[in-house]
Structure formats: C-alpha cells, structure tokens
C-alpha cells in the first residue's frame, strides 16, 4: 500500500443533539502513519467525533470511514482495525491486569496460543510489568490509563483513536503516557484528542483544531503559528527617569503611531517601569522603530523583545468566540479580552 492511504476520513460529518450541533460539517482526512492532535476547548466536539469514528454513536449526517470501512455500514470491520481509548477510560476495576488483557484479546479474536505473546508485547510497550500482579482498581490512574492503552493495542491495530488520554493525570504521568504514545505512533496512525497544547506539540506532527463543532485550523504546529501572522513585542520603559512616560496612555498613543494596526496592552510590573505588550500584524520588524521612538521621546528603554505568537495564543485566538478567523484578521489580541 502507498504511504499516503487515507486511514480516517470524515465527509460532512454532523451530529445534532436536538437543535444543538455538536459537530457541524466536519471534513478531514488522516493518512497512514500520521500522528494527529485533535484539539479544541471542552465541548468543541472532540469526543463526539471520536465516538462516531469508533461507531459508538451514529452521525446525523455525513460519512466517516476508518481504515476504508464506513462506520455506519460496516461498524464491525471499522472497529476491528482500530484501537480506542475512550475519555476517562474506565476499566473493570475488579479484574486483574492480565485477566483484563486476556478478556480484550478474546474479544479481538486472538487465539489462545497467540495471546500470551501479544500480552507480553503490549505489557512491554506500555511499561506495565510492575502492574501485572495487581487488580486494575489498585493501580494509580496513570497506570490504569496505560492498561487502557495496552487494551487498545492488543490486536496490533493500524489505527489508534485516543480520547484525552492524559486528562486527569499529573504532569509526570502525562509525560509518560505521551512518551508511550510517541513510541506507538512511529508505526501507526494515531488520532489523539487533548486540550493541552504542549502535549500535542510534543507528540503530534499535525494538528486539527476544532471549535464549536467546526474545524478552524489544520496543519503542522509551526505552520499554524506562522499562519496567524501576529508578532508580539514587549517594551519596558524606565519610570523613574526625568523624561519618563507619564502614563500607559502616553505610551500607547506613541506606539500606535509607529504600528499601524495592532493592539497595546499594559503588563503588570513594579512601579519603576512601564511594561507594555504590543501585538502587530504583518511580518515587518518594528524593533528599530520602537528604539527610535524611545530615543525621540528621551525615554529610557529597559527592555525590547520580539517574539512570534506562541501556539497557545494561536489556539486561544482560534477557539475563543464563534467567528475566530475574522477576529484573527483584526490583529489578534482582542480575542483574549473575552
């Protein structure tokens, strides 16, 4: 098979709960070997999409295919090529780890003579060796999540769908789980939902951002940050000098003369300095102009820093409010004030 087979496909996927559209005309493709982060704020439709892909619920409209199988027409085939870890995956707490994995293997029609090898394999991949003699209910949540991951991997599926695998984990546990997912993702197609960007950046080469049931961005993390096109400057002026700016307003007016379209915001600082944050559109570097501004006014410039917009902020811009793209074009930071 070619390396660019479409493994997960959604066409006009819509799910309505009453009049509310949990997801609205979603279109996307995930190709073989991709590890895709599926991001969005809570309630954006991430879980709904994943539940449709795993044939747990049916879409109101649209088509979804997993491994080439239509999830509505042929749910059993679709499920058989994927491994799924639901959100807050709960396992049978009263079962032993091995017992549970055997149960999962039975349901995956792995014959008894192959089961032992398979279980060893997933135990190795998910680092479960220490957990083996225990009951699932006795394990920490991080370990339970890894058992869930092992369960999803037991039949060596080409596709993995993981719904917020790191929710409710402490930072160490989630780092571990992400590490395992990265390792697993080397040979598989993975769709991973999360609302933690740092994790997504860590594990995923591509991100799909959903908001209010619609896809608002799709691309590599760097691409997304670049596409938003906003550049951020931090300026800090000494307040104690003789010729210091009198107020934030004075700085703001001066800065806005330099930067045609942008926003200025005061950052918290001590009473010795005025610190402002300027968001400007366009790729121009305004640092020279800011320096000249300071010289002209006779203000003492303590700090001047330029940084491209962080992914977190891109995410926030895209997912706050309903008409994110237009807001984005306005110059960005305004979206944060909501």
């Amino acid at each position: 098979m070619a390396s660019n087979d479409v493994m997960i496909e959604a066409r006009g996927l819509t799910k309505k709960y009453g009049n509310h559209r949990a997801i609205d005309q979603l279109n996307f493709e995930i190709r073989r070997g991709e590890v895709v982060g599926f991001l969005g704020p809570n309630g954006a439709g991430k879980s709904t999409t994943m539940k449709i892909l795993t044939c747990f619920i049916a879409p109101t409209e649209g088509v979804a295919k997993v491994g080439g199988y239509d999830v509505f027409e042929d749910p059993l085939s679709a499920r058989s090529v994927l491994g799924y870890l639901p959100q807050r995956a709960s396992l049978y707490k009263e079962m032993g780890v091995v017992e549970y994995l055997e149960f999962a293997a039975d349901l995956r029609a792995i014959s008894k003579d192959k089961q032992r090898a398979k279980i060893k394999e997933v135990v190795e991949i998910c680092g479960l060796k220490d957990a083996l003699p225990k009951l699932i209910g006795e394990l920490s949540y991080g370990f339970q999540q890894r058992v869930g991951l092992a369960q999803a991997l037991i039949h060596d599926p080409p596709i993995l769908i993981l719904d917020e695998p790191t929710a409710d984990l402490d930072p160490n546990e989630s780092a571990e789980v992400i590490e395992y997912i990265k390792r697993i993702g080397k040979t598989r197609t993975v769709m991973l939902s999360t609302h933690d960007l740092a994790e997504a950046k860590e594990a995923c080469a591509r991100m799909l951002i959903v908001n209010r049931g619609k896809i608002v961005a799709d691309g590599a993390p760097d691409e997304l940050a670049a596409k938003s096109g906003s550049v951020r400057y931090v300026l800090s002026f000494d307040e104690k000098e003789a010729r210091a700016p009198k107020s934030f307003q004075e700085i703001k007016d001066a800065v806005l003369k330099v930067v045609s379209s942008g926003t200025v915001k005061e950052l918290p600082s001590d009473d010795r300095a005025h610190t402002v944050e300027v968001s400007a559109r366009g790729a121009n570097d305004h640092r020279r102009e800011f320096f000249k501004l300071a010289v002209d006014k006779g203000w003492t410039l303590l700090e001047l820093r330029r940084e491209t917009l962080q992914l977190e902020e891109v995410f926030r811009q895209l997912t706050v409010g309903g008409d994110a793209p237009r807001r984005n074009a306005d110059g960005g930071r305004a979206a944060n004030k909501e």
């Binding site: 014959s111 008894k112 003579d113 089961q115 279980i119 060893k120 135990v123 060796k129 003699p133």
Partner: peptide
C-alpha cells in the same frame, strides 16, 4: 476456531507468572 486452542488452554493459568 482453532485446534491448538485446546492445548493452549491448559497453560493459560500460567500466563500471569510467565508474563511477569
């Protein structure tokens, strides 16, 4: 399903110990 299943079933109990 499979003939070898029967013989594997006996060793099934040992799975845990073996995996460990």
């Amino acid at each position: 399903t499979a003939a070898p299943e029967a013989e594997a079933q006996g060793g099934d109990d040992k799975a845990l110990a073996d995996v460990a």
